[in-house]
Structure formats: structure tokens, C-alpha cells
Design a protein around this nucleic acid. Structure first.
Length: 292
DNA sequence: CACTTGACCTGTCCGC
DNA sequence: TGCGGACAGGTCAAGT
């Protein structure tokens, strides 16, 4: 569920909260959530400070003064939540209610800074992970070598999107949008919202998507992602930002989790089906499946 | 090689 | 009320 807008929201939050802080201690539960060797942790995490917080696709990169980085994938239920001390987050601060609430049963990794504040990596379903890697090695990870372009980057275009989607011409358009090697950062929420925006049925095979539809799809995808970032992302169940607050985008969503409600464009009742192995929300009037 | 399905997890919800 | 099973979906491995 954390997709590009949610991870970007976490990134922006962390950037203002943890840069310059020095890591004093770490605790973690399972090798899967944090598989690094204790010796590396001691040598390259402890006593290093946070220099950068960046993002590529749905992956967060916390750059450290040791020239290592914490690489974090939240997968479905991961959270990165910063909790200050009483002085920083006193009564009235939106984060104040978190003091004493963490760690909880979902906490996998706890990073304690030298000033006594804390960054928690929580993950109810344990799909997510956090790894400490030399910063220069990140680009060599298989995922980073294969991942597609950033959909909001200045040099991305509808023609590039079209060409990359068409590499998967025999699969449906929703599966192609979810393929991170086609374009980075799109997950179930924004695939459904983008396809509704362009009035394309998600089961349409890529080779059958009319040529005139790729530009509207590109525009809809960018608009949806930008709107969601502006609203702090989507909180369906677990997602919260770096201060523990939920996102607001689903208030504005056209179809995602809107089954049974009227389509904002034509009033037809939104339905939920299954496409590409995922729950899929469409307007049956706006998004008709042409014979294929 | 292209494409689809299952596994990884656990909390929640639904039907019996 | 309790319980089994379906479901949630990002990514990778395995299967067709």
C-alpha cells in the first residue's frame, strides 16, 4: 500500500525530522526485517549521522555519514515513525499522542538517536525490510538496475510510457502498470485511479489499448500521483507518515474503495472485480472492455 | 522469453 | 461466541 506518494510523503517528513541526528543504538527482531550482520551494524550504523533522505520508486534511502545507507522497503504494512522527546513534541504537537505508544507488537527495528529521540520501523506483516548497504552499492541491486523511470521526473513523457508499456503487449494494462520495470512507483491504488482517469478498462490487453489513450493515461497518472502527494498519500489501513498521521487522498479518490458509490464522472455505480490478481475498482460505464 | 500464479505474513472480516 | 477461510497487495521465485 505504500506506493510512490506514500513513500514520498514519508521521505519529506523524515527529511525534516532526522537529518543531522546521530544514531546511538539499534534494536531489531528478525533477520528478515533487518538482515545485516552485527559487526556491520556496529561499524557503519552506530555513531553515524543522517545526511540525506531520498527515494527511488517505492524504496527509501537514508544516507549516513559512514557512506552506508539504510535502504527501506515498506511493502504493504511498513511504517517509519519518528517520535521526539517531550521537549520537541510537547502537548499540542500532532505527534505528542505517540509518546509512549511505540514500540508496539509491530515494531521490527528501533533506531535511537543520541538526543534520545527515536525512529521506529513498524511492519505488521513482516513483508518489509531495512538493510544497511554501502551507498555506492545500491545502484547495483537487481531492483535498482531493472526498475523503470520515475513517473514524475521532468524527462518522463507519454511517449516513453507508451513505449515501455508496449514491451508487455500481451498482458493487461493493469498488470503492465503494476510492473515496476515499466514505470516506478505505481501500485494497486494508483493503477486503478489512473485507468479510471483515462477511461481504460484494466483488463484491456496492452496491444489493444488505442493509440490515442496513452497521452490521457500519462496525464491521469501524473495528476493522481501529484494530488496524492499533496494530500499526504492514501491511508487504507496501516499507512501513516513519519509523524504517525494518516494520508487524506482516499477522500478524493474516484474509484479505489468506492464500490457501491457513484462514479464522479457519470454517476454509474462503481464495481469491484479482480484483475491481475488484485482487487480492482472500475466504473462499468466509463471503462468498457472492447472486444479483444 | 513472456506471462501468470503462489509464497511471504498477520490482522480483520464474513459466514456458519 | 468461536472458528475456518477469504482477503488485503509489493515483490520475487517458481511454474506454465
Amino acid at each position: 500500500m505504500p506506493e510512490l506518494p506514500e513513500v514520498e510523503t514519508v521521505r519529506r517528513g523524515l527529511e525534516g525530522l532526522i537529518i543531522g541526528r546521530t544514531i546511538a543504538a539499534v534494536t531489531f527482531d528478525t533477520p528478515k526485517s533487518f538482515p545485516n550482520a552485527p559487526a556491520d551494524v556496529q561499524a557503519f550504523l552506530i555513531n553515524s549521522s543522517v545526511v540525506t533522505v531520498s527515494r527511488r520508486a517505492k524504496v527509501l534511502l537514508i544516507g549516513l555519514s559512514s557512506h552506508y545507507s539504510l535502504v527501506v522497503h515498506l511493502k504493504m504494512t511498513g511504517q517509519l515513525v519518528y517520535v521526539g522527546d517531550g521537549e520537541r513534541f510537547g502537548a499540542g504537537h500532532p505527534n505528542a499522542s505517540l509518546i509512549g505508544q511505540l514500540p508496539d507488537t509491530s515494531t521490527r527495528v528501533t533506531l535511537t538517536f543520541s538526543d534520545g529521540t527515536t525512529l521506529y520501523f513498524n511492519d505488521q506483516r513482516k513483508f518489509g525490510w531495512m538493510r544497511l548497504l554501502p551507498t555506492t552499492e545500491i545502484a547495483n541491486l537487481d531492483f535498482f538496475k531493472k526498475v523503470g523511470p520515475e513517473p514524475l521526473s521532468a524527462d518522463f513523457s507519454w511517449q516513453i510510457l507508451r513505449d515501455r508499456l508496449q514491451r508487455r503487449k500481451n498482458t493487461n494494462i493493469k498488470a503492465a502498470l503494476l510492473d515496476q520495470t515499466v514505470v516506478a512507483g505505481i501500485g494497486n491504488i494508483y493503477a486503478d485511479e489512473s485507468l479510471w482517469g483515462a477511461a481504460i478498462h484494466p483488463s484491456t490487453l496492452v496491444k489493444n489499448v488505442p493509440a490515442k489513450k496513452f497521452e490521457p493515461l500519462f496525464s491521469a497518472m501524473q495528476a493522481v500521483l501529484r494530488k496524492s502527494i499533496a494530500e499526504g498519500g492514501s491511508s487504507d489501513k496501516n499507512y501513516v507518515n513519519a509523524e504517525g498521521n494518516r494520508g487524506r487522498y482516499l477522500t478524493f479518490a474516484a474509484v479505489f474503495r468506492k464500490e457501491g458509490q457513484p462514479c464522479p464522472r457519470c454517476g454509474t455505480i462503481i464495481i469491484k472485480t479482480r484483475v491481475a490478481g488484485r482487487g480492482t475498482h472500475t466504473c462499468p460505464q466509463c471503462q468498457k472492455l472492447a472486444k479483444q
